[in-house]
Design a protein around this nucleic acid. Sequence first.
DNA 1: CTTGACCTTCCAACGATGGGAAGCCCCATT
DNA 2: AATGGGGCTTCCCATCGTTGGAAGGTCAAG
Lengths: 149, 149
Amino acid sequence: MNIGQAARASGVSAKMIRYYEQTGLIPPAGRRDSGYRDYSSEDVHMLRFVRRARDLGFSMAAINELLDLWRDRSRRSADVKRVATAHMIELRERIAHLNQMVTTLQTLVDCCSGDHRPDCPILADLEEPAEEHPRKRPSGALQRPNPRP
Amino acid sequence: MNIGQAARASGVSAKMIRYYEQTGLIPPAGRRDSGYRDYSSEDVHMLRFVRRARDLGFSMAAINELLDLWRDRSRRSADVKRVATAHMIELRERIAHLNQMVTTLQTLVDCCSGDHRPDCPILADLEEPAEEHPRKRPSGALQRPNPRP
DNA sequence: CTTGACCTTCCAACGATGGGAAGCCCCATT
DNA sequence: AATGGGGCTTCCCATCGTTGGAAGGTCAAG
């Protein structure tokens, strides 16, 4: 099976299949005499695993762990659970972060008349944030670490 | 005021200040004879504006629009509101997406015993995702017919 | 005058993906 | 058999916002 067929069968684009191979996430595919990569149905199975994990938001590092656990018949389910739980916690943090933004934005948008006049509480808040909706960043902010030393 | 002081005063790292200048998000700073960038308190004010907009998750393209509107005294608040609302909608979509992931993950994690045994519903789902109509499996048809284009 | 902190520019990397070019390979149709 | 079109190969570049580092110039205190 060529890479294009494997891509269609797995839902992972040919580009990404080559990338996953290059970065070591998946083992190198077999090659034909022509140099074309050759995929078995088991390879496609693995690619679908990766695709599904990506759909659930797992990072490639986490997928690497999950693939190792998947292949390890003597794995402990606790290890899998740990990886999944850690990812879920991170997702929840991101959601909380985004929710905070939306809450603030909704407040500001609600206060904006949205007409022809220039006065705008949204710009006013960006200029000098009001204390009524302070946006406290979580102390361990991942995306925007405080540049202050 | 040097770039380091402006960075500390605005909460935007010196690296990012240079980057914002380079990409045209902010106008080029004044220069001393030494070549050092020189910042006024108004510059810092603008940097704080940018910083707060980033904290609210606005993209640099959106911040560009917001800065233009900020500087335009004859702006219509409707234009500001439009930018903010569009961003909020996008944030809500991302949240919905993440929530979907978390919901699935929570279900799987709840089903996982998390002990020394290898059996794991998390891996089982990654291998073969549970479908809403699990019995319907037409042969030859792709389960996920849409490989991301 | 030396030292160390600061500044400058330039280059690279991150994660995950897409786009595209140049060139080879395979299959079907003339 | 030749040809054409589509698939495959590798390689490089772009995204987005941010950080890191190297090489070298500047400033201020000791």
